[in-house]
């Protein structure tokens, strides 16, 4: 059940992200990139196999690894979140600059001729 829900969530997020990414307005593009990066982050966690109630941090002596979840994907996803967030913020600044300079929020910097 958990697997199905997560898979659906990743699928919906990625699909919406890709669709928005292909839209002509810069705001749609940045929302698309954000959704896509959420999908990717969830995917990374899923690649460490889904477990409930299993901590990723080892504690104490006589450790049985089967009681723990794989910590590497969790470390990876933290890095990916931070980097993705920073770059989305940077992209937002560029979008605002483009809107200010070209006077249009179209990705080509000008309105398409009707």
């Amino acid at each position: 059940m958990m697997e199905l829900v997560l898979a659906l969530a990743i699928g919906v997020l990625a699909a919406s992200g890709v669709w928005l990414l292909l839209r002509p307005r810069t705001f749609q593009v940045i929302m698309g990139l954000a959704l896509l990066s959420y999908a990717v982050n969830l995917f990374i966690v899923a690649m460490g196999r889904l477990r409930t109630g299993a901590p990723p941090v080892l504690k104490g002596d006589n450790i049985d690894p089967s009681h723990y979840t794989d910590p590497t994907p969790q470390a990876l996803v933290l890095t990916a979140i931070v980097i993705g967030f920073a770059l989305t913020a940077l992209f937002l600044v560029v979008i605002l600059a483009a809107r200010g300079i070209t006077g249009s929020d179209h990705v080509d910097g000008k309105e398409p001729e009707a």
């Binding site: 896509l36 460490g48 483009a98 070209t102 910097g109």
Partner: peptide, 30 residues
């Protein structure tokens, strides 16, 4: 203007490529 317009595309393409990079890396790790 030219740099900002070119930069917009450049950044969008490369952020998307980075997403693909992460998907590939995590699949290989999985």
């Amino acid at each position: 203007e030219r740099r900002i317009r070119a930069g917009l595309t450049y950044i969008a393409v490369n952020i998307t490529a980075s997403s693909l990079f992460l998907i590939g890396v995590s699949l290989i790790y999985g």
